[in-house]
Simulated assay, not measured.
Amino acid sequence: MTRDKEILIQVGDRIRAARKKAEISQEQLGHLSGLHRTYIGCVERGERNISTLNLLSITSVLGIDAGEIITGLKRPPRLKP
């Protein structure tokens, strides 16, 4: 598994945990954030690289700071040969 995929899975796991703590379904989160429920599921499974704006929409609904989702995650820069 690539490092990028690992990061996407960690982000998804953190969003899922926050959603469950808020006691709302993927469908409710999608509706309240203006996103489709299948997109929420893909993000939670690490299948989609979430945009900054979508992350902010989701975390606003969950009542958390977006920083909670990405704190501690690091990705090395992509160096061109």
Score class of each variant (00 low, 15 high):
residue 31 H to D: 15
residue 16 R to P: 06
residue 64 I to Y: 04
residue 11 V to L: 10
residue 76 P to M: 03
residue 80 K to F: 07
residue 51 S to I: 06
residue 33 S to F: 03
residue 48 R to Q: 02
residue 57 S to H: 13
residue 36 H to T: 11
residue 14 R to F: 00
residue 44 E to T: 00
residue 79 L to W: 05
residue 9 I to H: 00
residue 28 Q to M: 15
residue 46 G to A: 09
residue 39 Y to D: 02
residue 13 D to Q: 15
residue 58 I to T: 00
residue 25 S to Y: 12
residue 49 N to R: 06
residue 4 D to H: 13
residue 10 Q to T: 14
residue 16 R to H: 15
residue 14 R to T: 02
residue 54 N to M: 11
residue 56 L to S: 03
residue 23 E to V: 08
residue 9 I to G: 00
residue 10 Q to F: 04
residue 34 G to A: 10
residue 37 R to S: 09
residue 68 E to M: 12
residue 22 A to S: 10
residue 1 M to E: 13
residue 21 K to W: 06
residue 29 L to E: 11
residue 73 L to S: 11
residue 42 C to W: 03
residue 30 G to L: 12
residue 76 P to E: 08
residue 26 Q to H: 15
residue 5 K to A: 14
residue 53 L to D: 14
residue 27 E to R: 15
residue 70 I to E: 01
residue 39 Y to C: 05
residue 62 L to H: 04
residue 60 S to L: 02
residue 24 I to P: 13
residue 50 I to L: 01
residue 72 G to V: 10
residue 28 Q to C: 05
residue 69 I to E: 02
residue 5 K to C: 09
residue 47 E to Q: 11
residue 46 G to E: 03
residue 18 A to Y: 09
residue 34 G to L: 09
residue 3 R to K: 15
residue 51 S to L: 08
residue 77 P to G: 11
residue 56 L to I: 13
residue 63 G to M: 04
residue 26 Q to D: 14
residue 30 G to Q: 06
residue 10 Q to R: 12
residue 9 I to Y: 05
residue 30 G to F: 09
residue 62 L to D: 02
residue 64 I to K: 05
residue 58 I to V: 08
residue 34 G to F: 07
residue 67 G to R: 08
residue 15 I to D: 03
residue 69 I to W: 01
residue 65 D to N: 14
residue 76 P to T: 10
residue 59 T to H: 00
residue 44 E to G: 07
residue 74 K to V: 10
residue 43 V to E: 01
residue 33 S to T: 06
residue 35 L to K: 10
residue 9 I to W: 06
residue 65 D to Q: 14
residue 80 K to L: 07
residue 67 G to T: 08
residue 75 R to Y: 08
residue 47 E to V: 07
residue 26 Q to V: 10
residue 13 D to K: 08
residue 14 R to H: 10
residue 66 A to D: 01
residue 42 C to E: 12
residue 2 T to L: 12
residue 1 M to P: 12
residue 50 I to G: 02
residue 7 I to C: 12
residue 70 I to H: 02
residue 8 L to R: 07
residue 64 I to L: 08
residue 49 N to L: 01
residue 60 S to W: 11
residue 4 D to V: 14
residue 29 L to D: 06
residue 31 H to S: 13
residue 45 R to A: 14
residue 80 K to H: 05
residue 67 G to H: 14
residue 59 T to S: 05
residue 17 A to Q: 09
